[in-house]
Simulated assay, not measured.
Amino acid sequence: MSKPLILVTNDDGITAPGLRALVKSLQEIGEVVVVAPDSPQSGMGHAITLDNTLYSKRVIIDTAEDAAKEYSCSGTPADCVKLALQELLDRRPDICVSGINHGSNASINVIYSGTMSAAIEAGIEGIPAIGFSLCDYSWEANFAPAQKAIKKIVSEALQNGIPKGVVLNVNIPKTAQGGIKGIKICRQARANWKEKFDKRTNPSGKDYYWLTGEFQLLDKGEDTDEWALSQGYISVVPTQFDLTAHHAIQDINTWNLNEY
């Protein structure tokens, strides 16, 4: 039987060390094709390109004989998945894997994440998908300790499937003295960003702003992704892209909306 086809993408750009580490891990499992942004696209969420031209080209970053086939794309992470599925791949991928992101996408960060939006785009198309993130923003982050777990999670997803309408958000703790303790299936922690803008003035007298902020964890539960990461575990959160608040439908049906 042929190897499973694995579509790999990210939001840090095609040359990011996290993506290189991911490709290396997944080549032991299947046939890897990379379609990734040609420049960093962090925080893009699920943005897509509508009013600009998209460009894509075959690139050679790894010169090894068995290197993965790779394409750079001028668009967003979601664009990369759309273009891969519609134009660049010879067949439908068995799974889409996004990452490894430089920095956490746990808790509320999933809303803003280009890494997870790429995985969600694949999920919308009915393709099993996983986003991986390492809780270390450094370009020189050590991805090696996570590679065994990544191969295990992807292999299990290929073997068992991922529930329909679900994408996995996997976050990996920055390894401390004791290393990674294990893997925990979690819920998304309740948290937000207390944001501020650093206002400055340029030499021509025009004001400009830098977004800053502080992460606020509002959840003390011991079943959340943030708790698992703080204890040295990899967190796996099943994430859905159906944003309907089903629990609220009954309450809102009590509103008097028939007369307007």
Rank of each mutant, 00 (worst) to 15 (best):
Y112T: 07
I162V: 09
F132P: 00
T63Y: 10
K206Y: 14
C80K: 03
Q86F: 05
T9R: 03
L54D: 02
A47R: 15
I95D: 07
C186P: 07
P17L: 03
I48L: 13
K194P: 00
V237E: 08
P238L: 10
I252A: 11
Q41D: 05
F241G: 07
T49Q: 11
S42T: 14
Y233V: 08
S117G: 11
I249P: 06
P203E: 12
V32I: 12
G161S: 04
W255Y: 15
F197E: 12
V166D: 02
K164I: 04
T175A: 13
K57D: 13
L243V: 14
N192I: 08
R187T: 07
S25A: 15
G103F: 05
H247M: 08
V97E: 02
G18E: 01
A119G: 09
D66R: 11
T115V: 15
E65G: 02
A84P: 06
L134G: 02
A146V: 01
G103Y: 06
C96L: 15
S72F: 03
E121F: 00
Y260A: 13
D38I: 10
D242I: 04
P77K: 11
T244L: 15
A118M: 04
S98N: 02
G221L: 12
S133R: 08
V154H: 01
V110E: 05
I111Y: 14
I249A: 13
H46M: 11
K3S: 10
F143A: 07
Y55C: 11
K174Y: 04
A129G: 06
Y137Q: 10
A36G: 06
K199F: 06
A84E: 04
V33N: 04
A118D: 02
I124F: 08
R20C: 09
G205Y: 07
E121P: 00
L5T: 07
G30H: 07
W210V: 14
S117I: 09
V59T: 10
K69E: 14
V81C: 03
N171H: 04
N253K: 15
L5S: 08
C135T: 11
I130G: 01
G114P: 11
I6H: 01
A228Y: 02
K220Y: 12
V34H: 04
V154T: 03
E65D: 13
E70T: 15
